[in-house]
Computed example of a mutant assay.
Amino acid sequence: MPEKKVYVIDAPIPDEHDPTTRAHYNSWLKHVDDSIETASLMLAIIILALQKDLEHLLAYDIITKLKDLFQHQERMKRFETFGVLHGCKMGE
């Protein structure tokens, strides 16, 4: 993904735009277009089961949803690893 489009996963698209200010409107429109393009690239590289659930979302929303889905799994892995390590006996 080009670095110039990474901003679309860091913040959601602003809900409001000012159509009277041409520069502001163009900036908002570029954000929307970049988000759609980035979301398409993201969907192209993930498994089909996730594609079905995420295909209606934009880039920021996809990242947020993926974090929600997989962050819990990471916490559980750390918890299980800590339990295993805690249960180990140290040698003399």
Rank of each mutant, 00 (worst) to 15 (best):
M1H: 02
M1F: 05
M1W: 00
M1T: 04
P2K: 05
E3H: 00
E3F: 03
K4W: 01
K5H: 03
K5Y: 04
K5S: 00
V6C: 00
V6E: 01
Y7Q: 02
I9A: 07
D10W: 07
D10S: 07
A11M: 14
A11V: 07
P12K: 06
P12L: 03
P12H: 05
I13F: 04
I13Y: 02
P14I: 02
P14H: 00
D15P: 01
D15L: 07
E16R: 02
D18A: 06
D18F: 02
P19N: 09
P19L: 01
T20E: 10
R22T: 15
R22F: 15
R22A: 15
A23G: 09
A23R: 13
A23P: 08
S27T: 02
S27V: 02
W28C: 02
W28S: 00
K30A: 10
K30G: 05
K30F: 10
H31C: 01
V32C: 03
D34A: 03
D34N: 12
S35R: 04
E37R: 07
E37W: 13
T38F: 15
T38H: 12
A39Y: 03
A39R: 03
A39I: 06
A39W: 08
A39P: 07
A39T: 07
L41R: 14
M42E: 06
M42H: 09
M42C: 10
L43H: 04
L43R: 05
L43D: 02
L43T: 08
A44D: 10
I45H: 12
I45W: 05
I45K: 12
I46S: 08
I47C: 11
L48M: 11
L48A: 08
L48C: 13
A49F: 04
L50Q: 08
L50G: 12
L50F: 04
K52Y: 08
D53C: 09
D53H: 06
E55P: 05
E55R: 10
L57A: 06
L57Y: 13
L57C: 10
L58K: 11
L58E: 13
L58V: 05
L58T: 12
A59T: 05
A59M: 12
Y60L: 02
Y60E: 09
Y60V: 04
I62W: 03
I62G: 03
T64V: 00
T64E: 08
T64A: 06
K65F: 00
L69F: 02
L69D: 00
F70Y: 06
Q71G: 06
Q71E: 05
Q73S: 09
E74H: 09
E74P: 01
E74I: 03
R75T: 15
R75C: 14
R75A: 11
M76A: 14
K77D: 06
R78C: 09
R78A: 11
R78T: 13
F79D: 14
F79W: 05
F79M: 08
E80G: 02
F82Q: 14
F82T: 11
G83H: 13
G83I: 06
G83Y: 08
V84W: 12
V84A: 10
L85P: 07
G87C: 06
C88R: 15
C88A: 14
C88F: 12
C88G: 12
C88P: 04
M90V: 15
M90S: 14
G91P: 13
E92H: 10
